[in-house]
Amino acid sequence: MPMIEMKDVSKWYGSFQVLKDCTTNVEKGEVIVVCGPSGSGKSTLIKVVNALEPFQKGDIVVDGIKVNDPKTDLPKLRARVGMVFQNFELFPHLTITENLTLGQIKVLNRSEDEAVTRGLKYLDRVGLISQKDKYPGQLSGGQQQRVAIARALSMDPICMLFDEPTSALDPEMVNEVLDVMVGLAKDGMTMMVVTHEMGFARKVAKRVIFMDQGSIVEDATKDDFFGKPRSERAQQFLSKILHH
């Protein structure tokens, strides 16, 4: 059974169709990179997985639970799916430690002691244990994004969604975040990553999904995608982003 199963997913904003019959699977332990030009629907594709964005047609099943079933307990499902955002979205009024423990205490009903222990373990893993009492605004972008990853991890997710995790970062901070993500991939975390970092894709992705105008144009293994992309649109895209 795949970890994430999408079948014919379509979504409209009014009369504008942002997703057109998207079908794909993410197996347990796989890392899938989603890329494509801006406005192609890749961020939307990743946000429908944990129902942050509703969709009108098709089915999504995460770990055997149907996302678009009205009876599904969405908060419970979301708690098991880690998500990292383009703009970090740490809670600016809470300290780093409080950011790490809020979900654990409120959603997983862990005691504060246990939540802090777990949270700090992951904060240590992303190399920021010394920042635990600071507020997000006192950290650099790269540090904030690493905290955001630690926050997602401390919920013990069964898979992780990344929505352009390095797009808002200054160039010199991109690698510190990618390093953490590569480490996660090597540990066998199931990951769906929207990114333009083709180096990351080459290093850890199993498959690459290329989107254009709301459709999945290409869904190929990494070697096929970089070796011989079949669609002209994907070839153009690759030539544009790889030649700099």
Partner: peptide
């Protein structure tokens, strides 16, 4: 995005609002 981040952690509407 702040609301999304709350929901993504599994918080419900009232928890996201309150916290």
């Amino acid at each position: 995005g702040q609301v999304w981040a709350g929901y993504a952690l599994g918080l419900d509407y009232w928890q996201t609002m309150a916290k």
